[in-house]
């Protein structure tokens, strides 16, 4: 019963897709194709990421992560976060478990936000796709705008979140393990 509840959204969606076969076959096929493609992408990307996170959890001491990417790691920590986010693959929700694992290891909230921001906008494969579909001028302008905006969003959030909010975020991340 508990398992059924966990998969409720998935099962309901399958039901909706099944039903739409009856009245709009073309759209239903399209839905199946997109779900299949996303599913394959997920199954492909997630396993190595989770294996790497597991290894990080076990092998890398908290002090090391704090030193390189903690609250007081300075410019290097943020640069590292930016590079990690940009080197990523997969849609933004893949970054959520990674960010939570980083928070558990004591990485600073600002740096986690930089990583999330980079993941959403400066990912290299995404930029290539954007370039192919919308051209160099569009892609480069957006990129040059997005880099400062990632920093501004992270700054504003760190400023707006109170001490207790931040503690709550770290507590939540600890629970996600």
């Amino acid at each position: 019963m508990k398992i059924l509840k966990k998969y409720l959204v998935f099962l309901l969606s399958l039901g909706v897709i099944g039903l739409s076969f009856l009245w709009d076959k073309q759209t239903a096929v399209k839905a199946v194709v997109t779900v299949g493609k996303s599913f394959k992408e997920m199954l492909f990307i997630l396993p190595p990421i989770f294996v790497l996170l597991g290894l990080l959890d076990v092998w890398v001491p908290r002090e090391t992560m704090v030193k390189y990417m903690g609250k007081d790691s300075g410019l290097m920590g943020s640069l590292l976060a930016f590079l990690l986010g940009s080197a990523a693959a997969g849609p933004l929700y893949v970054v959520f478990p990674i960010a939570a694992a980083f928070l558990r290891k004591g990485v600073g909230l600002f740096n986690v936000l930089i990583m999330i921001g980079a993941w959403s906008t400066t990912k290299i494969p995404m930029l290539l796709m954007e370039y192919n579909s919308l051209g160099a001028k569009f892609t480069l302008t957006r990129l040059f705008m997005n880099i400062p905006l990632i920093i501004i969003i992270a700054l504003v959030m760190v400023l707006l979140l109170k001490e207790e909010d931040v503690q709550e975020i770290y507590k939540r991340a600890a629970k996600m393990e």
């Binding site: 959204v9 969606s13 839905a31 779900v35 599913f39 989770f50 959890d57 076990v58």
Partner: peptide
């Protein structure tokens, strides 16, 4: 570490599957 990896994968799988299918529709 592998056990941890598997656990976190299984943990978010139901929600990911749900999201992927809703997004697909």
């Amino acid at each position: 570490s592998l056990r941890k990896a598997w656990k976190s994968f299984v943990n978010i799988l139901p929600q990911l599957l749900g999201m992927i299918s809703v997004i697909g529709i």
